[in-house]
């Protein structure tokens, strides 16, 4: 309320006002459905995930290996030249502990989401995925930065050519490459 207006007429809307039809309501469920064409590069990327591999594209001019793959190099503005397989291991670039689900509900078990630079890809390139088997404390105390991780894949028969064919990335074990 402002200084000049001490009281507005009426009362705030209640559930009852709506259920008894005192308030006009209109319902419209948008049926906006799309069939996104993944395109040349991402189709191959998904196909290879099904095979348990991560593929990128190399630009011969700047020498970068782009992951996820693209058919053009955004820096050199020319077509990329060849498919290159990169490893399913890498290094954490940044990470977050998410306590909230996509629908704003509180998660019972918080999730760790991370950007991972993959071995074999150019610096700063790789994958956005979840981290598993990582202590949230290691995120809070920033030990997660640079952490060496490896993909945990779904069993081959369950893969469907999706980013979720990788379940999550886990820390590399001692002596593991």
């Amino acid at each position: 309320m402002s200084e000049k207006i001490k009281e507005y007429p009426g009362h705030p809307l209640s559930e009852q006002d709506i259920s008894t039809g005192k308030v006009l309501t209109t319902k419209w469920r948008p049926k906006a459905r799309y069939m996104y064409a993944a395109g040349v590069a991402i189709s191959k990327f998904l196909e290879e995930l099904k095979n348990g591999r991560i593929v990128g594209r190399k630009c011969r001019k700047c020498g970068r290996i782009l992951v996820p793959p693209r058919m053009y190099c955004e820096w050199c503005f020319r077509p990329t030249d060849e498919w290159v397989y990169v490893k399913d291991t890498g290094r954490v670039v940044t990470a977050v502990i998410s306590y909230i689900a996509a629908d704003r509900a509180r998660l019972e078990k918080p999730e760790i989401i991370a950007v991972i630079e993959l071995d074999g890809a150019s610096p700063g390139m790789g994958i956005l995925h979840k981290l598993g088997e990582v202590d949230p404390e290691d995120v809070k105390n920033m030990k997660v930065f640079g952490m060496r991780v490896k993909a945990v894949w779904k069993p081959p028969e369950e893969r469907e050519g999706s980013i979720t064919d990788i379940l999550y990335f886990r820390p590399l074990k001692e002596g593991e490459e």
Binding site: Y36, A37, A38, G39, V40, A41, I42, M71, Y72
Partner: peptide
């Protein structure tokens, strides 16, 4: 219909 290319590949 262009199911074989993504919008960004068409733009390129």
């Amino acid at each position: 219909a262009t199911p074989d290319v993504a919008f960004h590949e068409m733009m390129f």
